[in-house]
């Protein structure tokens, strides 16, 4: 938990510094007749975030020294199920870039239901084919929102 807290604070600090750099590029100081300079507002935001994350880091450090007992960031054995959800989901998005959302989602549904859910093949096939198909009709056909189809786009021109 403490480690995660520190890492998180460091990431936020990095964001804060990035914002500060951008503020410097736009011009920070001064209060002209049109109000503050363009960089002023984001300078304040960047400064606030950076200082805040440093304070959090300090708190973590103090707790570390005191060795206050804390809960672990991830419950023992909790990481695996999260990865089981997250990795296929990320794979689905990656695949969407190539084969489109519908097919990628069908595969994702099938994989998850079969290996994690241990459902019967028949249920797996039904859900993973019907759900994308129904979504296709709702979004692409009825509401005219073309969802990404990747390389298959040219085959699906109807």
């Amino acid at each position: 938990m403490r480690k995660a807290d520190a890492i998180c604070a460091l990431i936020i600090l990095a964001i804060g510094i990035l914002v500060l750099c951008e503020a410097a590029r736009l011009g920070i100081f001064g209060w002209s007749t049109s109000g503050p300079e363009p960089g002023m507002y984001i300078f304040l935001l960047g400064m606030g975030v950076s200082v805040g994350s440093l304070v959090v880091l300090g708190q973590v450090f103090v707790e570390w020294r005191k060795a206050v007992p804390v809960k672990p960031f991830i419950r023992p054995g909790g990481l695996r199920p999260v990865l089981y959800v997250a990795v296929p989901a990320a794979m689905m998005v990656l695949l969407t870039e190539f084969i489109g959302l519908y097919i990628a989602a069908g595969l994702y549904l099938a994989v998850y239901m079969r290996w994690i859910g241990k459902h019967k093949w028949i249920t797996v096939a039904a859900v993973s084919i019907l759900l994308p198909l129904v979504s296709y009709f709702i979004f692409d056909r009825i509401f005219l929102i073309p969802l990404p189809k990747g390389r298959f786009e040219d085959l699906l021109t109807f």
Partner: peptide, 15 residues
């Protein structure tokens, strides 16, 4: 689905 795929192919060809 097979029928649909055939139709799609035909339409694409005709296009």
């Amino acid at each position: 689905a097979v029928v649909a795929a055939l139709v799609v192919g035909l339409v694409g060809f005709w296009g």
